[in-house]
Design a protein around this nucleic acid. Structure first.
Lengths: 216, 216
DNA sequence: GTCTATAGCCAGATAGAC
DNA sequence: GTCTATCTGGCTATAGAC
């Protein structure tokens, strides 16, 4: 649906719909810029070390303006995490539906590894914190997360069924192992070492995860 | 070497050697208690969320007293990390020397997993921080870490030589993958789920790491 | 809605009596 | 060396002018 000037987009009265939608658009663009900056800083420093001042400075706005968009630091970080979930679901939707389930799982992990190597994987604190509570209380995040887990879980079950994934590992263990690779410090360590390029590194970790450390 | 009363243990003059060594002993005991409390809190909340007040409260001393032992929060955490390294080297020394190298590696990983499940694995922030700098500048930590890495690295090379470990994975990648399991959030997640006991959980993650997710 | 300025709080570190 | 009391700085969040 496109927005044409002069066409009211909402049911409640507006003095000038065109101008109103333009302002709403601008607001959305700014908000996206804020979330993107927060995402980058979450990937770089994590929630605790990231400051709201930094986010505002990176976007080029005042901190008080940022608080007109998000009521708290937790709220801002939750928006970044939700953006991650949305991107993940977009990736899943873009995968060929007829591929083997094991290949789907590898594609998901590869995407997460590349995101982390690009410095775009927001990191939440592994311990309990205010951020966890905010995410659990979020209106849509938990539901989106469950939906994502269900889709990946379906591939896990299918891969175990067709004999390509170890059937002795419980499905939830496999799912969490995949999720955990998203914040695996191995990538950051080895990337800092500088001995491997991003593509090689991602394939090495991918292989180690699926094929294991043992010789075959 | 035992310390007998009246026998000077140091070359510099002391008014009362017995009393001095007693006091030194008491000081050491207190210091150990502080480090142990810090270790537990680092495992529970991580460096950023742990406060020096909490550590002092857990030991039952005033914060100012704690600062007589450690000059900073980073210094305290570094002592906890060094304690971990020392415990790791004690474990390595306790392993049977004639075991196959792959079994040595599995024993090390199993020990790390059990430590984490017991809430005794101090966690340092994965991102760059003041703690990293303190650890790098520590008088003995980096050397001990290198020593540990060399010993484990020897087993990795041997296991690749005897055909039990995948020779296509570079040794440093294998080493970091093992290290990273020490702070793997998979254990905490699944433990919180309550579906698996500690022993089962450790064996599941151990198997997934060495044998991989793929079916064999 | 954007800004500057500031309130309020919390945690690391220290002063100074005993 | 241990304590109580305090300093200091940084960060979240808000007030209030425009």
């Amino acid at each position: 649906m496109t927005i044409s000037p002069g066409t009211p987009q909402r049911t409640f009265p507006q003095v000038s719909p065109a101008k109103a939608s333009f302002k709403a658009h601008m607001r959305q663009v700014r908000e996206d810029a804020i979330v993107e900056a927060a995402n980058r800083l979450l990937a770089e420093k994590g929630f605790d070390l990231m400051t709201v001042d930094e986010v505002a400075a990176e976007v080029g706005i005042a901190k008080a303006s940022l608080y007109k968009h998000f009521t708290s630091k937790e709220d801002l970080a939750a928006a970044a995490m939700l953006r991650l979930l949305t991107r993940a679901q977009a990736l899943l939707a873009s995968l060929p539906a007829n591929a083997r389930p094991l290949e789907q799982l590898k594609a998901v992990l590869r995407w997460m590894l590349q995101l982390q190597l690009a410095g775009d994987m927001p990191a939440l604190p592994s311990q309990n914190s205010s951020l966890r509570l905010a995410l659990m209380a979020h209106p849509v995040f938990p539901d989106q997360l469950r939906q994502l887990g269900a889709q990946i879980g379906g591939w896990i079950a299918a891969a175990q069924q067709d004999g390509s994934l170890n059937p002795r590992l419980p499905a939830d263990v496999v799912l969490y192992i995949l999720y955990a690779r998203a914040c695996d410090p191995v990538l950051a360590f080895l990337k800092a070492g500088g001995r491997y390029g991003d593509e090689v590194l991602a394939e090495l970790v991918l292989a180690a995860c699926f094929e294991g450390l043992n010789a075959r």
